[in-house]
Amino acid sequence: MLEDQIVRITSRLVAPFIQVYGIYVILHGHLSPGGGFSGGAIFGASLVLIALSFNLEAGVKQISHQTASVLESGGALGFTVTGLIAIALGGNYLANRAAGFPLGEAGQFFSSGAIMVITVFVGIKVASTITTLFYNIIEKETPHGNSKQAD
């Protein structure tokens, strides 16, 4: 779409750092500000940035439309299953300590039982939702009804 060399080189340089920062925010959601939604939004923004500065094919090579849809549903499914595991272990829905998840040592990285798992699933869900949102806007509609990729 954009045929600008400066934009392309800058986004190619910056995108890996944005992705690492997004993963960091997701994984440290129980220790520092941020969490699944913030980190997922940062990670999804990097994928959208690649698809916008190069073209849709370069973005689809990173994460295809089908994969984004599967990850979107899988994130919601993982959240639900993590909540149901707590019921199976004898607590309420999404119960953490009452259901007997190992809590670990407070302040350490593995320290919050099921909360970190839930945060990771929320991050996957939000990142793939933002990517799917962008793909749906940028794709060309063909007269036959099925969507065709824009250049």
Binding site: P33, G35, I42, V48, L49, I137
Partner: peptide, 26 residues
């Protein structure tokens, strides 16, 4: 509110502008 600031910087500045640019390009 640093967590809201993080979301605003990612969504309000990044993703919303990118989606609007995509809409303008169409």
């Amino acid at each position: 509110a640093p967590d809201i600031a993080m979301v605003e910087a990612a969504l309000g500045t990044g993703v919303a502008a990118l989606l609007l640019i995509a809409a303008i390009s169409k």
